[in-house]
Simulated scan of single mutants.
Amino acid sequence: MGAWQLLLVGLVLLLGLFGVLVPGVPGPWLVWAAVMWWALHVRTGPAWWLLVGASGLMLVTQVVVWQLPARRVRPLGVTGRMVAYAGTGALLGFVLLPVVGVVPGFVGGIYLAERLRLGGHGQAAAATRAVMRSAGTSVLVQLSACLLVVAAWVGAVLAG
């Protein structure tokens, strides 16, 4: 697979990560489709194992998300700034403390956005809890799975 094709797969993976944060965009499916495209073109053992692992993880993620309450973000006033802070926090947390850092990074990003918007700790903490109860948990589950698949893909590309 050439450098341009790897770049395009990487861009689709990045689009999938952003798609998790934007309602209505099928982010996890974009991540899975990019890994499938890569595996079909590379045709190595690690590529097939990554595709199988990504497929299993995405299926488990969908089952978990279906078991969570429905996403209701409109009444909470979820803004683009909050989504950007939460996504950035999750990515930083994932990089600084692999795999488990996505949770405190995501929640911390929401808290920081609410703290800047509302001003006080008590109000920001209450707003963060409300966001996490209504929509944050399902987004966090999907984002964690997608980050894990993207990190595995980057590792597989660098290794071989």
Rank of each mutant, 00 (worst) to 15 (best):
W29A: 14
W29Y: 11
W29L: 15
L30P: 02
V31E: 08
V31P: 10
W32Y: 10
W32Q: 10
A33S: 14
A33E: 08
A34W: 04
A34S: 13
A34P: 07
V35N: 02
V35M: 06
V35L: 14
M36E: 03
M36A: 15
W37S: 14
W37R: 03
W37V: 13
W38R: 04
A39P: 07
H41P: 00
V42C: 04
R43D: 11
T44S: 15
G45V: 14
P46V: 12
P46L: 09
A47T: 11
A47E: 09
A47D: 11
A47S: 15
W48A: 14
L50I: 09
L50Q: 11
L51N: 01
L51G: 04
L51Q: 06
V52A: 15
G53I: 01
G53R: 09
A54I: 01
A54G: 08
A54N: 05
A54R: 09
G56P: 12
G56E: 08
G56C: 12
M58W: 05
L59Q: 12
L59S: 13
L59A: 15
V60Q: 07
V60H: 01
V60L: 15
V60W: 14
V60G: 06
T61D: 01
Q62F: 10
V63N: 00
V63A: 11
V64H: 01
V64T: 06
V65G: 05
V65P: 02
Q67N: 00
Q67S: 12
Q67C: 05
L68K: 03
P69Q: 06
P69C: 08
P69M: 05
A70P: 00
A70L: 03
R74M: 05
R74N: 00
P75G: 09
P75T: 03
L76D: 02
V78G: 00
G80E: 03
G80R: 14
G80W: 13
R81E: 11
M82A: 15
M82P: 00
A84S: 10
A86V: 11
G87D: 08
G87P: 09
G89R: 10
G89M: 07
A90E: 04
A90G: 15
A90N: 10
L92Y: 08
L92W: 12
L92S: 08
G93C: 04
F94P: 01
V95T: 12
L97M: 12
L97H: 05
L97Q: 02
P98T: 06
P98D: 04
P98W: 02
P98Q: 07
V99D: 07
V100C: 08
V100K: 04
V100I: 15
G101N: 08
G101L: 12
V102R: 09
V102H: 07
V103A: 12
